[in-house]
Structure formats: C-alpha cells, structure tokens
C-alpha cells in the first residue's frame, strides 16, 4: 500500500544496545528483543519526529546521512513493512 503513514513508539519504549555494527532492541511494550541492521535503527529515529510515509522518512534521513540513489525509498518501504510485522512501528 503506497503512501501508508507509519508511527513509532516513543524512545523510552525501546532500550538499544549496540553490538558490532548491529543494534539490539529491547521493546518494552512487547517484552521482545530484536536484532536489527542499518537502516532500521535510523528509520525508527526518523519516525520519532512524527508520523511519516516512506518518502518523508527518506527525506528526514537525507538530512542526517548520505543516502545514494533513488532506490532508498523502496528499501525504506520494505524495512517499514518488516518493522510493522515486528510491532516496532504501526500504521496511523
């Protein structure tokens, strides 16, 4: 569903520990642990500024990081769906 808008839980809901390039997330509302690779933590960070669709997330991330090419939006969209299935983000 193109254009779906997502929202992430506030920062205090997730405890993050970095382990050799990966991030270990303990998600308090679910009690579940997730091991995620970039750009998933960066997507969560971007979403904490407020609800957004994949395009807006990419725009926010470009302000912080070097994102190459036009495929970024597709990649972010795919990651968002994974994060949604894990319960880390939800649709508004």
């Amino acid at each position: 569903m193109a254009g779906a808008r997502y929202v992430a839980d506030p920062e205090e809901c997730v405890r993050t520990v970095a382990l050799d390039g990966l991030s270990l997330l303990f998600h308090r509302p679910s009690g579940m642990t997730h091991i995620v690779a970039p750009p998933a933590p960066q997507i969560l960070e971007a979403l904490r500024l407020g609800p957004a669709d994949a395009g807006e997330v990419v725009a926010r991330m470009r302000a912080w990081y070097d994102l190459e090419g036009d495929e970024a939006a597709d990649a972010v969209e795919a990651r968002l769906e994974e994060l949604e299935a894990a319960g880390l983000v939800r649709r508004t």
């Binding site: 405890r15 382990l19 050799d20 390039g21 990966l22 303990f26 308090r28 009690g31 642990t33 091991i35």
Partner: peptide, 24 residues
C-alpha cells in the same frame, strides 16, 4: 562476534523471554 554470541545464548536459554527486561 557479540551479536552472534547473544543470539546463540538466547537460543541456549529456556527462560530468556519470560524474564523480560531483567533477562535482556
């Protein structure tokens, strides 16, 4: 690597999930 150690140890634990934040 640490991430692999973490994964393997969660798989070697029977009560990791049920301990929640304390287990993490």
């Amino acid at each position: 690597g640490q991430a692999e150690v973490f994964m393997r140890l969660t798989q070697a634990s029977t009560n990791y999930v049920s301990l929640g934040a304390a287990g993490f």
